[in-house]
Lab assay of single mutants.
Amino acid sequence: TEEVEKIVRELQKRGVSQEEIQRILKRNGIDPRDVEHVVRRLR
């Protein structure tokens, strides 16, 4: 989703690792598959 993408991009800008990003998003109830998808697209 748009929202997830924004969050991921923001965290990446701050130098947060992929694993940490995924952990944060999972904690916020976001589907890990969505996270994977977004992270892969932004690489």
Rank of each mutant, 00 (worst) to 15 (best):
V8P: 00
H37V: 12
R41A: 03
E36G: 03
R23E: 14
H37L: 12
R40C: 15
E5G: 04
V35Q: 01
D34K: 09
L42G: 13
N28V: 12
V8I: 12
G15V: 01
Q18N: 13
N28K: 13
R33H: 10
V4F: 05
R33K: 12
L25M: 06
V39E: 09
G15S: 03
E36R: 04
Q18Y: 15
R40L: 00
K13R: 10
T1D: 09
R33W: 06
Q22H: 10
V4G: 01
K26I: 15
Q12T: 11
R41V: 02
I21P: 00
I24R: 06
R9H: 05
I24Y: 06
P32E: 09
G29Q: 03
I30L: 07
V35H: 02
I21M: 10
E19H: 09
L42H: 12
E20T: 05
I21H: 00
E10A: 10
Q22K: 14
L11C: 12
E36V: 04
R33G: 07
V8M: 06
E5I: 10
D34S: 07
E19V: 07
N28Y: 13
V35D: 14
R41N: 11
S17L: 05
I30M: 09
R41P: 00
L25N: 01
V39G: 03
R27M: 13
V39Y: 02
Q18W: 15
G29F: 03
G15D: 03
V4W: 08
I24F: 05
E19F: 06
L11R: 00
R9Q: 05
Q18R: 11
E10K: 07
Q18M: 15
R33E: 09
E3K: 10
G29W: 02
L25W: 00
I30A: 05
V35K: 01
E3H: 11
V8H: 00
K13H: 08
H37P: 02
N28E: 12
D34H: 09
R41S: 06
R33F: 05
P32R: 03
I24T: 04
E5L: 09
G29C: 11
R23W: 04
R40H: 08
R14K: 11
V38H: 03
Q12P: 00
E19L: 08
D34G: 04
I21S: 00
E19R: 09
E19G: 08
I24Q: 08
V35R: 00
E5H: 05
V39A: 04
E2M: 10
I30E: 02
E19S: 10
Q18S: 12
E36W: 04
E5V: 10
V4T: 04
S17G: 07
R9V: 06
R43A: 15
R33S: 10
I7D: 00
E20N: 06
T1W: 12
K13N: 10
K13S: 11
E3T: 10
I24A: 05
E10R: 06
I24P: 00
E10F: 07
H37N: 13
E20K: 06
G29T: 03
L25Y: 00
R9Y: 04
E20A: 06
V38L: 13
T1R: 10
R33V: 08
R43P: 14
E36Q: 06
E5D: 05
P32N: 03
V8R: 01
V4M: 07
T1H: 11
V16R: 05
V38S: 01
E10T: 06
V8L: 08
Q22A: 12
N28T: 10
G15R: 04
R41Y: 03
E5R: 05
E19Y: 06
D34V: 15
E2S: 10
V4R: 01
D34Y: 12
D34I: 15
Q12I: 15
R27F: 09
D34W: 12
R43M: 15
R23G: 10
I30D: 01
G15C: 14
E36T: 03
T1I: 14
D34M: 14
V35P: 01
V38T: 03
D31I: 01
L25S: 03
L11F: 03
P32S: 06
E5K: 04
L25F: 00
L42I: 15
N28C: 15
E19Q: 10
V16W: 10
E2W: 09
E20C: 14
E19D: 10
D31E: 05
S17T: 10
V16M: 12
R33C: 15
L25I: 05
V39C: 15
E20G: 06
E36P: 02
T1N: 08
R14P: 01
R43Y: 11
D31A: 04
P32L: 05
R43S: 14
V16F: 12
V16E: 03
G29A: 03
